[in-house]
Amino acid sequence: MHTPSSPRVALFVTCLVDLYRPEIGFATVKLLEQAGCDVEVPETQTCCGQPAFNSGDNRSARDIAIRTIEAFDGYEYVVGPSGSCIGMLHHYPELFETSDPWHRRAQDLKARAFEISSFLVDVVGLDNLAASFHGSVTYHDSCSGLRELGIKAQPRALLARVEGLELKEMKESETCCGFGGTFCVKYPDISNRMVGNKTANIAASGARTLVGGDLGCLLNMAGKLKREGHDVETRHLVEILTGCSDTAAIAEPADDRTRLARQL
């Protein structure tokens, strides 16, 4: 229900959440609605274009940027559950000459685009978080969110309000997990060493659940944790903030209950 006081927010699902883990999308919507937002999911959104941008293919990146700017036209805010993809939206102005009208529109999108934890804490000041989680978690700071958008305190501030949750910081939480988008495909063995260092730090933290704000990094770390046989679950921040005990964690088999729920 749109009321004058509720901001009209477009959810930027991001392609990995769309493909791999819809729960993150739904949890993001739930948090935004809890914060009093009127949430819509524009049909014409696809991917932010980062793979093209980081591969030096600026023409494709520009074409995708134009599509994305159009898809999110007219919304007061654009919010997504990823520092990396929202960070890419913040790069859009670099793709256009300042004299190009798309440059102004890219600037305009940049000003409206927020990663979910920073939106909840810095923009709307969510004050009715009512989640509980019984166990210990450790938080990985994904690079783009941390260094391009300054996301460090916000997720921790939100986690601190989750009843029963204990945060056990890992060593080197700010060190890259080695995902790096196409990097993990181009340099798989270096990427593997980096994620191996990361899982060692995660395991040493003693936390039972790894939490982060970017699904690309989480898929990488969850895949490595499982391959190495660690008894650590992996979840996106928004899953914890909305209460997630009824769904299987990333890379875990769905239990019978959730499988049944999904079939229905």
């Binding site: 699902v13 959440v17 769309d18 493909l19 791999y20 883990r21 819809p22 729960e23 999308g25 739904f26 999911v41 798989p188 063995d189 990427s191 593997n192 994620v195 898929l219 990488n220 969850a222 895949g223 490595k224 499982k226 391959r227 769904t247 299987a248 990333i250 890379a251 769905a254 999904r262």
Partner: peptide, 13 residues
């Protein structure tokens, strides 16, 4: 080097 997590259900869209 690592497992590939599977999608947890049909796409979000």
């Amino acid at each position: 080097w690592r497992d590939m997590p599977a999608p947890s259900g049909r796409t979000f869209m």
